[in-house]
Design a protein around this nucleic acid. Structure first.
Lengths: 228, 228
DNA sequence: GCCACACCGAGAGCACTGCTCTTGACGGCG
DNA sequence: CGCCGTCAAGAGCAGTGCTCTCGGTGTGGC
């Protein structure tokens, strides 16, 4: 085999190094990632970076995919716990929050305001939906185990769209349950963004407890019994 | 009087024109506001703009305050309706969403990822809290009218902070009610950001209905009876 | 084994950015 | 009326994303 020729391998290594340095710059400097600075840090000409990423946006896209995958893995691992369903949801929420606190700029990259002319390519979606799939999976499991009331069906314009979402999560899942799970994820996402983007400054300091307070409300809405 | 000398008046007009053109650029071009382009559009040298705003960040701060005030006014006007409390909350939520849809980049400016080295000065907070005050006011009124159950008290670390928030909204408001209102606002904010930032793409098209679906869940959590 | 080809790094250069400093000119207050 | 403070403008600095061209080098086909 040896399909990876020497040239292809050093190219892969170089690509990885650029991404690594870019992530470090993102963590240290903030959102305005400078391609030239990354190149300078590696020790090569800025123009050489363009051999690996056609543009700054393409580099950002690669970082976005990595971030989605990293967050998705963290969420999946937290969601896989053997506890009660509600407990698993809460644990996953805390895991997502901690991931975000450790990499605030990567969180901003994926859930903050989109960069100017940037439109997420199709490649990102499979990585992007991992965390919602993990959360939705908990709800779907709970429903399959009979631990979740169906709730009242949805009105007209929402029902068919909710059905599509439900079919992705688990065949036979009631649409309204799927939409509650989706809404629950958006709430979690919004709460974490609010903390990270400074909206809670001088208002709430016990952030972890406040997030759990909100998640308990969410779970009650979804219909998952939550034990203290 | 005539405290506003001719010089001071043309200065105020110039300041306003810069802000107006900057807002237009923001709406057309996107987040990366160029001070030079604004100056070019007005027809003056870029260096002259610095007579009015010491830096690009200061211009952004002015735009942020304007955005907060504009959104706050929209929310206050929607929240003032004479309908049932739940209806007023929902109407306010829709008003906030429509404001955001009409000015997506201004929304991103205030609720999206913060700009790199930027820290919101103290001047912004009075404008920033107007919308949460409007929403919290509805809840406080409902509680005063006896239309809202107290719910169970908060556990230790949250209680004192919730008390401070409650005191701002209305004297005597139970802390847990205030925190539910705050959480409800964060949910609303997160849901709108999710729509604007593209998280619902190819998933939910009936955005207005989906937002209302989520708000009804929020209101049930807060304890406000919502009639269909 | 060799050689053309594809790839790669470096440098110069373009158009743009935020921001500073200096130079004149003009308006308004004492 | 004079003069001080404010103003617009231009040049300039350091930085950015990106393109192009130029030599050098690994690689696959003959």
């Amino acid at each position: 085999m040896k399909a990876a020729s020497l040239r292809a391998r050093v190219r892969a290594e170089m690509t990885e190094e650029i991404k690594t340095v870019a992530k470090r710059h993102l963590a240290e400097e903030g959102a305005n990632l400078s391609l030239r600075a990354v190149a300078r840090d590696i020790g090569m000409a800025s123009s050489a970076v363009y051999r690996y990423f056609a543009s700054r946006d393409e580099l950002l896209t690669a970082l976005i995919i990595d971030a989605y995958d990293s967050l998705g893995a963290a969420a999946e691992s937290a969601a896989a716990g053997g506890d009660a369903f509600a407990r698993r949801w809460i644990d996953t929420g805390h895991a997502v929050r901690e991931w975000a606190l450790a990499r605030p700029h990567e969180w901003a990259l994926i859930y903050g305001s989109p960069v100017p002319g940037y439109a997420a390519p199709r490649d990102t979606v499979t990585s992007a939906i991992r965390v919602i799939l993990a959360l939705g999976g908990i709800v779907a499991e709970a429903h399959a185990a009979g631990a979740l009331p169906d709730g009242e069906p949805l009105a007209e314009p929402l029902a068919p769209e909710a059905r599509s979402v439900a079919d992705v999560l688990a065949p036979g899942l009631p649409p309204q349950v799927a939409f509650r799970a989706l809404g629950g994820w958006l709430q979690l996402c919004g709460a974490i963004s609010a903390e990270l983007f400074g909206q809670l400054q001088n208002t709430v300091e016990a952030r972890r407890e406040f997030l759990e307070f909100q998640m308990r409300g969410t779970l009650a809405w979804i219909g998952l019994e939550v034990t203290p």
